[in-house]
């Protein structure tokens, strides 16, 4: 029997404040971008249907809702993630240096059963700024870090221009799908309190 976990893929986006997490989500799901930065208020999660091999999946992309500002994301946020997206700003050194902290925080809090093979993806965002002249992290340096952490796929993106965003999220979805759900904790007997509005566990029962 297909569990809802196989139909619903939870993706979380981590990274320092201001690197463009909410904008990336918004560009991917709503194809919209706002130039003015305001610390995230009001963002919860966005969902998008994706198709793989004739089956539809719901990608549920969780925003940090601003709780990353003081590293105050609760363990519940991390739990059950199928893929973790780490974002930094190619123009801000500190945001790159903190990738490792975010990765470790994720592994600690989510405690996936196979931490070595848990799917991460790294996005170097804001490559559009100043035509790339203000960037402080080279693609080579970022890729080297990704390689050292078990070959994490790496994308350079611009949420503003929509550059590479679609491709990055395709990869995110593919890798989320490959992630085997932990154990049978999620299997069918969770109670559907939403009255079936979300249709979480329906769909293909093969």
């Amino acid at each position: 029997m297909a569990s809802r976990r196989r139909m619903l893929l939870k993706v979380i986006i981590l990274g320092d404040s201001g690197v463009g997490k909410t904008s990336l989500m918004n560009q991917y799901v709503n194809r919209k971008f706002s130039n003015q930065y305001k610390a995230t208020i009001g963002a919860d999660f966005l969902t998008k249907e994706v198709q793989f091999e004739d089956r539809l999946y719901t990608l549920q992309i969780w925003d940090t809702a601003g709780q990353e500002r003081f590293q105050s994301l609760g363990v519940a946020f991390y739990r059950g993630a199928d893929c973790c997206v780490l974002v930094y700003d190619v123009n801000v050194m500190k945001s790159f240096e903190n990738l490792n902290n975010w990765r470790e925080e994720f592994l600690l809090q989510a405690s996936p059963s196979d931490p070595e093979n848990f799917p991460f993806i790294v996005l170097g965002n804001k490559v559009d700024i100043d035509g790339g002249n203000s960037r402080v992290i080279s693609e080579k340096k970022a890729k080297a870090w990704c390689a050292s952490k078990g070959n994490i796929p790496y994308f350079e993106t611009s949420a503003k221009e929509g550059f590479n965003v679609e491709a990055a999220f395709q990869c995110i979805a593919r890798n989320a799908l490959k992630n085997e759900p932990e154990e049978e904790l999620y299997l069918p007997d969770t109670i559907d309190v939403s009255g079936g509005q979300q249709q979480r566990s329906t769909g293909c029962e093969c």
Binding site: I41, G42, A43, D44, A65, G66, Q67, R69, F70, Q71, S72, G74, V75, A76, F77, R79, L185, T190
Partner: peptide, 26 residues
């Protein structure tokens, strides 16, 4: 699932979505 402790976390996330600022270890 995961216990009663999920409730305060869920309400805090709801608060954060509405603009509340959370600072743990403080």
């Amino acid at each position: 699932m995961y216990g009663q402790g999920e409730l305060p976390q869920a309400f805090c996330r709801r608060a954060a979505v509405k603009g509340c600022l959370h600072v743990l270890r403080m």
